[in-house]
Design a protein around this nucleic acid. Structure first.
Length: 414
DNA sequence: TCTGGGGTCCTAGGACCC
DNA sequence: TCTGGGGTCCTAGGACCC
């Protein structure tokens, strides 16, 4: 038996944790640069505000309805997520952290009645941390996901799928709401008369595989109650690391774009080192213009390293070279991103045969970056930070006009 | 004036090898 | 008349998830 524990309206619940006066009030949380709505309280969902909706489109409506608006604060949400995960892990020795606000737990043999076990989890997370969760219980991950969605609409916040109620629940689930069935696949299935999850399980598996590949087939098998997707208890190292930001202002000079991009590079590089990896490829991209306003588009370029790198210096130098190659004067740059990929374990890197001098230099640069990581880890995120970036940072800093005050303070400290 | 950010997996097709 | 059999690696594009 699996339990999917899913935090309700997670980002909103986090904001409410530090601002209890928001309990019972309609609340939304915005993405970077106050761009889109990425979390809604139940009150706001009831108003018909969609997930991912651009904030500016509904700004007036939200104000009229008295909705509290919060700028997103991922640092804070991650911290709370870690506490929730740690607590959940105490209920089992087999758990998969699926996302920032969800975990699959394999119920231990000693769990007893699943619903009672789930109730105990729910109660503890609520009382110890203050985050409300829903729990879906079923024999497979796909069914547990389905159960947790339905559980959100129940009084108890818990729903168990059994042999007895499975068919009815599948019939009551639109095919597009099934985990793993996205918009495109749902449209196709609808055209073939598959409107709900029960219709899908009734189809010939060979037909499903032919049209929707193995992923579709696995979803079908899982919906029938037979586990197909394994529980991933050990997080695998990332295959790519991406950091991109829509900037708070339009940037026009090479210097500003290059510095703003360096900020992204440093964030990505830090993550790279935290994972003990070195990058074989760096790729940068810049967006210019606005989507529905005159000229817009992306410029992008990659660089393959001779031998994988991990220092701030080499990565930011490479990024700067790439930007130099693709930068077009006269454009209004609105977003920049960097992607690191083709990773290898930092300890076992392939080298060139004849460049001892470079490797000696490189090792110094790497020791420096590791030292910076250690100091910033101890004393605060930007205790050591390039002065050239620090003096200009406000030029590209994204808008966060609705940041909760308590956290502005804490973020500076941490 | 204006729409976020970060990932993974699968498949088909091309190129290449023996 | 009618042209073997078996395999790998890489990339681009599509789809999905939170």
């Amino acid at each position: 038996m699996l339990a999917l524990c899913d935090c309700n309206n997670f980002f909103v619940s986090c904001e409410r944790l530090y601002r209890p006066e928001l309990l019972g009030r309609p609340v939304v949380v915005l993405s970077n640069n106050d761009g889109c709505i990425v979390a809604r309280s139940n009150e706001v969902k009831a108003m018909g505000i969609a997930m991912g909706q651009p904030y500016f489109q509904v700004q007036g409506l939200l104000r009229r309805k008295g909705v509290v608006v919060c700028s997103g604060n991922l640092v804070m949400y991650k911290e709370i997520s870690e506490k929730v995960m740690k607590l959940l892990s105490r209920f089992t020795d087999r758990m998969e952290e699926y996302s920032i606000d969800e975990a699959f737990l394999c119920l231990p043999a000693s769990a007893g009645d699943p619903a009672k076990f789930a109730a105990a989890i729910r109660e503890k997370v609520d009382r110890w941390i203050g985050i409300p969760i829903s729990v879906g219980l079923a024999s497979t991950k796909t069914l547990a996901k389905l159960a947790s969605e339905k559980a959100k609409k129940t009084e108890s916040g818990i729903l168990e799928i059994t042999a007895g109620n499975a068919r009815g629940l599948l019939e009551a689930t639109e095919i597009g709401d099934v985990w793993g069935i996205g918009r495109k696949t749902a449209e196709q299935l609808n055209r073939h008369g598959v409107l709900n999850a029960a219709h899908f399980t009734d189809r010939d598996p060979a037909w499903v595989k032919k049209r929707f590949t193995v992923r579709g087939l696995m979803t079908q098998i899982e919906l029938k109650g037979q586990p197909c997707l394994p529980l991933v208890t050990e997080a695998a190292p990332p295959k790519s690391i991406q950091v991109s930001r829509t900037w708070g202002n339009v940037l026009e000079s090479f210097g500003d774009v290059s510095l703003a991009m360096t900020d992204n590079v440093l964030k990505a590089a830090r993550q790279l080192r935290q994972n003990g990896l070195a990058a074989g490829v760096i790729s940068v991209y810049m967006r210019y213009g606005y989507r529905h306003h005159g000229e817009c588009g992306y410029l992008t370029r990659d660089l393959i390293f001779q031998s994988p790198v991990l220092s701030d210096f080499e990565l930011s130098y490479a990024a700067r070279l790439l930007i130099q190659e693709i930068f077009q004067p006269g454009r209004k740059y609105t977003q920049g991103g960097v992607i690191l990929c083709r990773f290898t374990d930092a300890r076992f890197r392939q080298r060139e045969l004849f460049d001892e001098k470079y490797y000696r230099e490189r090792s110094k640069l790497e020791r420096f970056s590791h030292a910076v990581d250690e100091i910033n880890g101890h004393f605060g995120e930007r205790v050591i930070y390039p002065a050239s970036l620090a003096v200009k940072e406000k030029i590209w800093r994204p808008n966060r006009k609705h940041l909760s005050e308590k956290w502005e303070g804490l973020e500076v400290r941490s």
